[in-house]
Design a protein around this nucleic acid. Structure first.
Lengths: 237, 237
DNA sequence: CCAAAAGTGTTGTCCCTACACCCATGC
DNA sequence: GCATGGGTGTAGGGACAACACTTTTGG
């Protein structure tokens, strides 16, 4: 804290969301089309300025996530990711953006936007292609979010947050394969994830929605850290 | 970003530092005594308000670290940790603090403070005791910093940042033992850390400063991620 | 010679990869 | 029966914990 006596400069605080889901075989991020300048017409992360003197950052993020997706905190994972404050990132003035990362399941109902313009799910891979442009520094934020997601599912059970309330082992494995972009051995995955205590709770039900032999259905268990960790397939070190 | 037309509320941004080092056999954090209200006379993390319209957050953190310790970025590790913005955390008004985590070696020369009042190294354990009070929510921030440090040295080579430029394997091991608060097997540690490619570079020199058989001296190598990871001794899962 | 600290060997266990193989459904 | 996907078995290798042991200094 400064001990100087000159006035304290103020800046605007934005709370932005990188909302990720897995749908249609790819990792996708929620983007809204900007209705005003700057970057009018370009896509951006949903978010807003911190507008209530009494609202916590985490609360603001949760409120905005609910506005965009209709989901509350029981159903999603929401965590603070990083704060971006490079001068010039917003041409209107000094804006510091506190960014949150959310994992949500593939919504069967279309997300009714709050005050958002047209909201759309866009594959992360598409967003990160060289030709794609987003408003502000949001492309870089998406890159950070994807990297964080890839890393987090290694040692936590957060991959289950991309699944519906009840899911099969194969569905969970597909989440891993899609987020990492690499195939996993179905048999070793099954043994490992079902062998980890407290991660999966069998419902006793079965489903044949994927064809073939019926698969057991599971719910996410109480454990949040994955031990032993689920390691990505060997890369060059 | 808000698409509303009412004025954008502004708040003050503080950039605060949790500077950690290992000295006198304990993990310690740099605290300064506050010269003004609020919490005049209490200890707080060093930091200051973002005071230059053209200064990046990372740059501001690096500048403040240099002011407090005299060290530049070549010698330390500095990373953004988390942003704290709970209403009421500063009685003067809405202040959002972007907190950075720094790892620095035990300075042989006393840190000449910039505009800081009396600066002091305080063992983290002392800070986190129930009876200790810090200004603002800085006690919680110290707790987050310690936990982050304990976790980071598992899978990165950042423990070397707590060591002088040249150090022995035993000195590095003591860093781990102090940060984790648990003893490690000297023999397994030696094998593992010297076996990891690119982590340690032998200088060819030896030292007997710890008594006994001379130990080889090393410098930190180019690799930043530790593979395989250095795992903490087994806790109850 | 003895204490102290550095560094090497060994052994059993766990986990991981890689496969082969059987099971239960729809058609 | 046959295709499709679910679930189990097994063998080899790497990493790890827990040890004993040798090496090299100072006193």
């Amino acid at each position: 804290m400064s001990d100087r006596t000159r006035p304290i400069p103020t800046v605007a605080i934005a709370v932005d969301l990188a909302v990720l889901t897995v749908r249609d075989g790819s990792l996708q991020v929620l983007l809204v089309e900007r209705g005003i300048e700057p970057w009018r017409g370009l896509q951006a992360l949903p978010g807003g300025f911190l507008d209530d003197e009494e609202e916590d950052l985490d609360t603001a993020a949760a409120r905005e996530l609910a506005e965009e997706t209709g989901l509350d905190l029981d159903q999603v994972h929401l965590e603070q990711m990083r704060t971006y404050g490079t001068p010039g990132r917003d041409p209107r003035g000094r804006v510091v953006a506190v960014c949150y990362l959310a994992f949500i399941p593939d919504l069967p109902s279309p997300h009714a936007g709050g005050d958002a313009q047209a909201a759309a799910w866009v594959p992360a891979q598409t967003v990160l292609e060289p030709g794609t442009r987003l408003a502000f520094d949001h492309k870089r934020i998406v890159a950070d979010a994807v990297e964080r997601a890839r890393s987090k599912i290694e040692y936590t059970t957060l991959a289950t947050r991309f699944c519906p309330p009840e899911f099969t082992v194969a569905e969970l494995r597909q989440v891993y394969e899609i987020v990492w972009g690499e195939p996993l051995d179905q048999r070793n995955f099954h043994r490992k994830i079902t062998g980890a205590e407290g991660v999966l709770v069998p419902t006793g039900e079965q489903t044949t929605r994927q064809g073939g032999r019926p698969a057991g259905l599971f719910r996410a268990g109480p454990v949040t850290t994955l031990h032993p960790a689920m390691l990505r397939p060997t890369r060059a070190w």
